[in-house]
Protein backbone atom coordinates (compact mmCIF):
# COMPACT_ATOMS: atom_id res chain seq x y z
CA UNK A 1 0.00 0.00 0.00
CA UNK A 2 2.78 2.37 0.99
CA UNK A 3 4.66 1.43 -2.17
CA UNK A 4 1.59 2.09 -4.31
CA UNK A 5 1.46 5.60 -2.86
CA UNK A 6 5.16 6.02 -3.54
CA UNK A 7 4.65 4.82 -7.10
CA UNK A 8 1.90 7.39 -7.53
CA UNK A 9 4.13 10.20 -6.31
CA UNK A 10 7.01 9.07 -8.53
CA UNK A 11 4.64 9.03 -11.51
CA UNK A 12 3.43 12.50 -10.60
CA UNK A 13 7.03 13.76 -10.51
CA UNK A 14 7.78 12.21 -13.90
CA UNK A 15 4.67 13.77 -15.34
CA UNK A 16 5.75 17.18 -14.02
CA UNK A 17 9.21 16.67 -15.49
CA UNK A 18 7.96 15.68 -18.91
CA UNK A 19 5.64 18.68 -18.98
CA UNK A 20 8.66 20.91 -18.47
CA UNK A 21 9.74 19.89 -21.94
CA UNK A 22 6.77 20.15 -24.24
CA UNK A 23 8.92 20.51 -27.35
CA UNK A 24 10.64 17.22 -26.53
CA UNK A 25 7.25 15.62 -26.30
CA UNK A 26 6.31 16.57 -29.85
CA UNK A 27 9.71 15.68 -31.27
CA UNK A 28 9.63 12.31 -29.54
CA UNK A 29 6.17 11.51 -30.82
CA UNK A 30 7.28 12.34 -34.36
CA UNK A 31 10.45 10.27 -34.11
CA UNK A 32 8.44 7.40 -32.68
CA UNK A 33 6.03 7.32 -35.65
CA UNK A 34 8.99 7.38 -38.01
CA UNK A 35 10.70 4.47 -36.25
CA UNK A 36 7.49 2.48 -36.23
CA UNK A 37 7.17 2.85 -40.00
CA UNK A 38 10.76 1.80 -40.64
CA UNK A 39 10.34 -1.12 -38.26
CA UNK A 40 7.36 -2.52 -40.16
CA UNK A 41 8.87 -1.98 -43.59
CA UNK A 42 11.24 -5.01 -43.65
CA UNK A 43 8.36 -7.21 -42.49
CA UNK A 44 6.20 -6.04 -45.40
CA UNK A 45 9.04 -6.51 -47.89
CA UNK A 46 9.95 -10.01 -46.73
CA UNK A 47 6.35 -11.26 -46.68
CA UNK A 48 5.76 -9.88 -50.17
CA UNK A 49 8.40 -12.32 -51.45
CA UNK A 50 7.32 -15.32 -49.36
CA UNK A 51 3.78 -15.50 -47.95
CA UNK A 52 4.72 -17.91 -45.14
CA UNK A 53 8.03 -17.97 -43.28
CA UNK A 54 8.84 -20.67 -40.73
CA UNK A 55 5.14 -21.25 -40.23
CA UNK A 56 4.26 -17.56 -39.79
CA UNK A 57 2.00 -15.74 -42.21
CA UNK A 58 2.10 -11.96 -42.50
CA UNK A 59 -0.99 -11.67 -40.28
CA UNK A 60 0.65 -13.90 -37.63
CA UNK A 61 3.89 -11.94 -37.77
CA UNK A 62 1.98 -8.71 -37.14
CA UNK A 63 1.11 -10.10 -33.68
CA UNK A 64 4.82 -10.41 -32.92
CA UNK A 65 5.31 -6.93 -34.27
CA UNK A 66 2.46 -5.68 -32.09
CA UNK A 67 3.96 -7.12 -28.93
CA UNK A 68 7.36 -5.84 -29.94
CA UNK A 69 5.94 -2.34 -30.23
CA UNK A 70 4.16 -2.73 -26.90
CA UNK A 71 7.32 -3.94 -25.14
CA UNK A 72 9.35 -1.18 -26.69
CA UNK A 73 6.85 1.24 -25.19
CA UNK A 74 7.31 -0.39 -21.78
CA UNK A 75 11.08 -0.33 -22.20
CA UNK A 76 11.34 3.27 -23.36
CA UNK A 77 8.52 4.56 -21.19
CA UNK A 78 8.96 2.78 -17.88
CA UNK A 79 12.24 0.88 -17.69
CA UNK A 80 14.98 2.66 -19.56
CA UNK A 81 14.47 6.24 -18.27
CA UNK A 82 14.76 5.10 -14.66
CA UNK A 83 17.79 2.99 -15.31
CA UNK A 84 19.56 5.72 -17.22
CA UNK A 85 18.97 7.79 -14.09
CA UNK A 86 20.60 5.14 -11.86
CA UNK A 87 23.70 4.98 -14.01
CA UNK A 88 23.89 8.75 -13.81
CA UNK A 89 23.53 8.47 -10.00
CA UNK A 90 26.33 5.92 -9.80
CA UNK A 91 28.65 7.98 -11.95
CA UNK A 92 28.06 11.20 -10.02
CA UNK A 93 27.83 9.59 -6.61
CA UNK A 94 24.32 10.91 -5.97
CA UNK A 95 23.09 7.35 -5.46
CA UNK A 96 23.96 8.19 -1.84
CA UNK A 97 20.72 10.12 -1.61
CA UNK A 98 18.70 7.15 -2.86
CA UNK A 99 20.38 4.65 -0.56
CA UNK A 100 19.82 6.84 2.46
CA UNK A 101 16.04 6.94 2.02
CA UNK A 102 13.91 4.64 4.18
CA UNK A 103 12.40 2.72 1.27
CA UNK A 104 13.60 -0.12 -0.90
CA UNK A 105 16.40 1.28 -3.06
CA UNK A 106 15.68 -1.02 -6.00
CA UNK A 107 12.07 0.13 -5.99
CA UNK A 108 13.07 3.78 -5.77
CA UNK A 109 15.53 3.62 -8.65
CA UNK A 110 13.25 1.48 -10.80
CA UNK A 111 10.39 3.94 -10.54
CA UNK A 112 12.44 7.10 -10.62
CA UNK A 113 11.52 8.22 -14.10
CA UNK A 114 8.73 7.51 -16.58
CA UNK A 115 8.06 8.93 -19.99
CA UNK A 116 4.28 8.97 -19.97
CA UNK A 117 3.85 9.75 -23.67
CA UNK A 118 5.34 6.36 -24.54
CA UNK A 119 1.84 5.09 -23.86
CA UNK A 120 1.40 5.99 -27.53
CA UNK A 121 3.07 2.66 -28.28
CA UNK A 122 0.17 0.83 -26.64
CA UNK A 123 -2.23 2.41 -29.09
CA UNK A 124 0.06 1.51 -31.99
CA UNK A 125 0.34 -2.09 -30.86
CA UNK A 126 -3.47 -2.34 -30.64
CA UNK A 127 -3.57 -1.07 -34.22
CA UNK A 128 -1.09 -3.75 -35.32
CA UNK A 129 -3.14 -6.47 -33.62
CA UNK A 130 -6.29 -5.23 -35.36
CA UNK A 131 -4.49 -5.17 -38.70
CA UNK A 132 -3.13 -8.68 -38.12
CA UNK A 133 -6.50 -10.16 -37.19
CA UNK A 134 -8.11 -8.42 -40.15
CA UNK A 135 -5.56 -10.17 -42.43
CA UNK A 136 -6.34 -13.46 -40.75
CA UNK A 137 -10.08 -12.78 -41.07
CA UNK A 138 -10.90 -13.61 -37.42
CA UNK A 139 -10.62 -12.29 -33.89
CA UNK A 140 -8.93 -13.64 -30.72
CA UNK A 141 -10.90 -15.51 -28.07
CA UNK A 142 -11.17 -14.03 -24.57
CA UNK A 143 -9.12 -16.92 -23.20
CA UNK A 144 -6.32 -16.28 -25.66
CA UNK A 145 -6.23 -12.61 -24.74
CA UNK A 146 -5.95 -13.54 -21.06
CA UNK A 147 -3.15 -16.02 -21.76
CA UNK A 148 -1.34 -13.46 -23.88
CA UNK A 149 -1.60 -10.94 -21.03
CA UNK A 150 -0.04 -13.45 -18.64
CA UNK A 151 2.74 -14.20 -21.13
CA UNK A 152 3.29 -10.46 -21.45
CA UNK A 153 3.71 -10.06 -17.69
CA UNK A 154 6.46 -12.68 -17.85
CA UNK A 155 7.98 -10.80 -20.78
CA UNK A 156 8.00 -7.47 -18.94
CA UNK A 157 9.56 -9.07 -15.85
CA UNK A 158 12.32 -10.65 -17.95
CA UNK A 159 12.98 -7.43 -19.82
CA UNK A 160 13.17 -5.48 -16.58
CA UNK A 161 15.49 -8.07 -15.02
CA UNK A 162 17.87 -8.04 -17.96
CA UNK A 163 17.99 -4.26 -17.89
CA UNK A 164 18.51 -4.21 -14.15
CA UNK A 165 21.38 -6.69 -14.45
CA UNK A 166 22.97 -4.41 -17.03
CA UNK A 167 22.63 -1.54 -14.61
CA UNK A 168 24.12 -3.54 -11.75
CA UNK A 169 27.16 -3.91 -13.98
CA UNK A 170 27.52 -0.14 -13.71
CA UNK A 171 28.60 -0.57 -10.09
CA UNK A 172 31.67 -2.37 -11.37
CA UNK A 173 32.37 -0.71 -14.70
CA UNK A 174 30.76 2.71 -14.28
CA UNK A 175 30.44 3.35 -18.04
CA UNK A 176 27.92 0.90 -19.44
CA UNK A 177 26.63 2.93 -22.39
CA UNK A 178 28.06 0.38 -24.81
CA UNK A 179 26.52 -2.52 -22.98
CA UNK A 180 23.05 -1.00 -23.03
CA UNK A 181 23.43 -0.05 -26.70
CA UNK A 182 24.42 -3.60 -27.53
CA UNK A 183 21.40 -4.81 -25.63
CA UNK A 184 19.18 -2.37 -27.53
CA UNK A 185 20.51 -3.69 -30.83
CA UNK A 186 19.90 -7.30 -29.81
CA UNK A 187 16.41 -6.43 -28.58
CA UNK A 188 15.60 -5.23 -32.11
CA UNK A 189 15.65 -8.86 -33.24
CA UNK A 190 12.59 -9.46 -31.06
CA UNK A 191 10.40 -8.06 -33.82
CA UNK A 192 10.82 -11.36 -35.70
CA UNK A 193 9.24 -14.65 -34.64
CA UNK A 194 12.02 -16.68 -33.02
CA UNK A 195 11.40 -19.61 -35.42
CA UNK A 196 12.99 -17.52 -38.18
CA UNK A 197 16.34 -17.97 -36.48
CA UNK A 198 18.17 -21.28 -36.53
CA UNK A 199 20.57 -23.31 -34.42
CA UNK A 200 22.70 -21.51 -31.92
CA UNK A 201 21.11 -18.12 -32.50
CA UNK A 202 17.65 -19.48 -31.74
CA UNK A 203 18.92 -21.20 -28.59
CA UNK A 204 20.52 -17.95 -27.45
CA UNK A 205 17.33 -16.00 -28.15
CA UNK A 206 15.28 -18.55 -26.22
CA UNK A 207 17.41 -19.15 -23.15
CA UNK A 208 20.18 -16.56 -22.81
CA UNK A 209 18.52 -13.40 -24.05
CA UNK A 210 14.99 -14.74 -24.15
CA UNK A 211 13.56 -12.74 -27.03
CA UNK A 212 11.25 -15.69 -27.76
CA UNK A 213 9.68 -15.28 -24.36
CA UNK A 214 9.28 -11.57 -24.86
CA UNK A 215 7.40 -11.38 -28.16
CA UNK A 216 6.97 -14.78 -29.82
CA UNK A 217 5.20 -16.46 -26.87
CA UNK A 218 2.69 -13.66 -26.27
CA UNK A 219 1.98 -13.58 -30.01
CA UNK A 220 1.46 -17.35 -30.07
CA UNK A 221 -0.83 -17.02 -27.06
CA UNK A 222 -2.88 -14.42 -28.85
CA UNK A 223 -3.13 -16.70 -31.88
CA UNK A 224 -4.24 -19.53 -29.60
CA UNK A 225 -1.27 -21.81 -30.22
CA UNK A 226 0.94 -21.41 -27.16
CA UNK A 227 1.29 -24.64 -25.16
CA UNK A 228 0.57 -24.50 -21.42
CA UNK A 229 3.96 -26.04 -20.71
CA UNK A 230 5.72 -23.27 -22.59
CA UNK A 231 3.75 -20.62 -20.71
CA UNK A 232 4.57 -22.18 -17.34
CA UNK A 233 8.20 -22.41 -18.39
CA UNK A 234 8.14 -18.74 -19.30
CA UNK A 235 6.64 -17.80 -15.94
CA UNK A 236 9.20 -19.88 -14.06
CA UNK A 237 11.98 -18.31 -16.11
CA UNK A 238 10.65 -14.84 -15.35
CA UNK A 239 10.46 -15.56 -11.63
CA UNK A 240 14.01 -16.93 -11.65
CA UNK A 241 15.28 -13.89 -13.56
CA UNK A 242 13.65 -11.59 -11.03
CA UNK A 243 15.16 -13.39 -8.05
CA UNK A 244 18.62 -13.45 -9.60
CA UNK A 245 18.37 -9.75 -10.37
CA UNK A 246 17.39 -9.02 -6.79
CA UNK A 247 20.39 -10.96 -5.49
CA UNK A 248 22.81 -9.29 -7.88
CA UNK A 249 21.42 -5.85 -7.03
CA UNK A 250 21.77 -6.49 -3.27
CA UNK A 251 25.34 -7.67 -3.74
CA UNK A 252 26.14 -4.64 -5.92
CA UNK A 253 24.81 -2.23 -3.32
CA UNK A 254 27.07 -3.85 -0.74
CA UNK A 255 30.02 -3.21 -3.02
CA UNK A 256 29.04 0.38 -3.67
CA UNK A 257 31.90 2.70 -2.93
CA UNK A 258 30.29 6.02 -3.79
CA UNK A 259 32.12 8.65 -5.79
CA UNK A 260 33.41 12.16 -5.63
CA UNK A 261 34.59 12.55 -2.04
Amino acid sequence: MRYLRLLAIQLRTSLLLSMQYRADFLLDAFVEVFWMATAILPLVVVFRVRPVIAGWSFGDALMVMGWFTFLQGVLEGAINPSLVTVVEHIRKGTLDFVLIKPADAQFLVSTARFQPWRAVNVATSLGLFAWGFARLGRGPSAGDVALAAVAMVAAVVVLYSLWMLTVSAAFYFVRIDNLSQLFGAVFDAARWPVQIFRGVVRAVFTFVIPLALMTTYPAEALLGRLGTGTLLGALAGAAAAFVITRLVWTASIGKYTSAGG
Binding site: R2, R5, L6, I9, Q10, T13, L16, L17, Q20, Y21, K92, G93, T94, D96, F97, K101, P102, A103, L108, G260, G261
Partner: peptide
Protein backbone atom coordinates in the same frame (compact mmCIF):
# COMPACT_ATOMS: atom_id res chain seq x y z
CA UNK B 1 26.68 16.58 0.99
CA UNK B 2 27.72 20.08 0.01
CA UNK B 3 29.23 18.85 -3.24
CA UNK B 4 26.25 16.80 -4.39
CA UNK B 5 22.63 17.66 -4.75
CA UNK B 6 19.44 15.72 -4.35
CA UNK B 7 17.07 18.41 -5.64
CA UNK B 8 15.48 17.48 -8.95
CA UNK B 9 17.27 19.75 -11.38
CA UNK B 10 14.35 20.71 -13.62
CA UNK B 11 11.64 21.01 -10.99
CA UNK B 12 11.04 23.51 -8.21
CA UNK B 13 12.40 22.39 -4.81
CA UNK B 14 8.83 22.08 -3.51
CA UNK B 15 8.40 19.00 -5.72
CA UNK B 16 11.50 17.39 -4.20
CA UNK B 17 10.11 18.22 -0.73
CA UNK B 18 6.85 16.53 -1.67
CA UNK B 19 8.72 13.45 -2.88
CA UNK B 20 10.68 13.26 0.36
CA UNK B 21 7.50 13.75 2.37
CA UNK B 22 6.07 10.65 0.70
CA UNK B 23 9.25 8.59 1.05
CA UNK B 24 9.60 9.41 4.74
CA UNK B 25 5.86 9.05 5.32
Amino acid sequence: LGQKQQLLWDLPPSDTFELNRAVYG
